[in-house]
Write a protein that binds this DNA or RNA. Sequence first.
DNA 1: TCTGGGGTCCTAGGACCC
DNA 2: TCTGGGGTCCTAGGACCC
Length: 418
Amino acid sequence: MFALVDCNNFYASCERVFHPSLLGKPIVVLSNNDGCVIARSNEAKALGVPMGAPAFEYAQLFKEKGIQVFSSNYELYGDMSSRVMSTLATFTPDIEVYSIDESFLKFNGFDVHFDLEAHALKMVQTVKQHTHIPVSIGLAPTKALAKVANKIAKKFPERTNSVYVIDTEEKRIKALKWTKIEDVWGIGRQHSKRLKALQIHTAYQFTQLHDDWVRKHMTVQGLRLKHDLQGVSSIDFETVQPKQSIAVTRSFETMYTAKADIAERVATFVASCGEKLRKQNSHANVVMVFLYSNFFRKDLPQHRGFITMKTPYPTNSTFELNRLVQEGLSKIYKSGISYKKAGVIVTDLTTAEAYQLGLFESENPKHVELLQTVDALNTRYGQVVKFANNDLKRRWKMKQMQLSKRHTTSWNELLEVS
DNA sequence: TCTGGGGTCCTAGGACCC
DNA sequence: TCTGGGGTCCTAGGACCC
């Protein structure tokens, strides 16, 4: 049996842990630069705030309805997430952390000795007690069915106590008939459009299609999903693996035209990419840079620059990566354009064990030691060492009008109780 | 004025090999 | 007029997830 544990309205719930007076009140959390709504409490959903709503279009509604607005505070959410996950890990040795707010848990052979539903109810309580984060749990013989069960638990919290189990054929069919096709895990906009055109409206109808049709139009991924929904476990349980690509991309708080401004921002992205690479002990073989004008400003000339470069040897040196990235930036930069977004992506990553020396060139060994020291200092003291090509005065600043405190990760921002 | 960020997997088709 | 067969590797792009 698999359990899918999902935190309810995770970012909104994190904010409420430290603002308990907001329990039962509508709140939303905004994306970087306070751009769009990326999390909503149930109350905010009920007031008609859609996912992804541009904040400026809804400012009036927030005010009228007394909806509390927060800027996103990833340091807080990341820390709360690891607290939830480590609590869950005490319930089973097999845990797949699927996203910041979701985990799959495997209970091999547990059903023989345990009442799994009672076990899950205990999990909900324990997570609540340890972190104050509300979670919902779906239990089923496959991952896709656990997702379905989770949706039911979340939709009917009173009747289910936030735990729902699909453990009989009757319950499986009933659940699938209840699930709309567009709500199925792995079926997005394109697939549900095509399926609806064929009068397939529920997950159950989807499972009645022929394997060949599903394989042809939805690849093997679609076929695995179908089998999973039929109760035959076909989607792998994945243990932690290093990332295959790492990206740092940002929209700018304002539009930039000068190359020097963009070069500085991009150098900062590279520094962050390098740090993430070294953290998971990987080296990049390919690095990409992109630079976009403001897509929403149809009145301005548009330009989308993108370039992919091979590194001369596998590297995680911020210096080497930046040399390439700045070279690439010169090739894609066009003057007279107002730029709104840029990013750096490293990919084709190799792990340290598979590290292959270049034939003619290799990493400057001094960089390795230097960067190790930089990382160690930054980990210990919190981003105290920066590269000279980064904006040391921090002229640019993300728009974050409603940022909450980093209560759990910064001594200076502890919650005060009076 | 204002519109997020970071990932994964799969396939078709071209380039290349013998 | 007419032009083999069987592979591998790589990449761009599409689809999806949170």
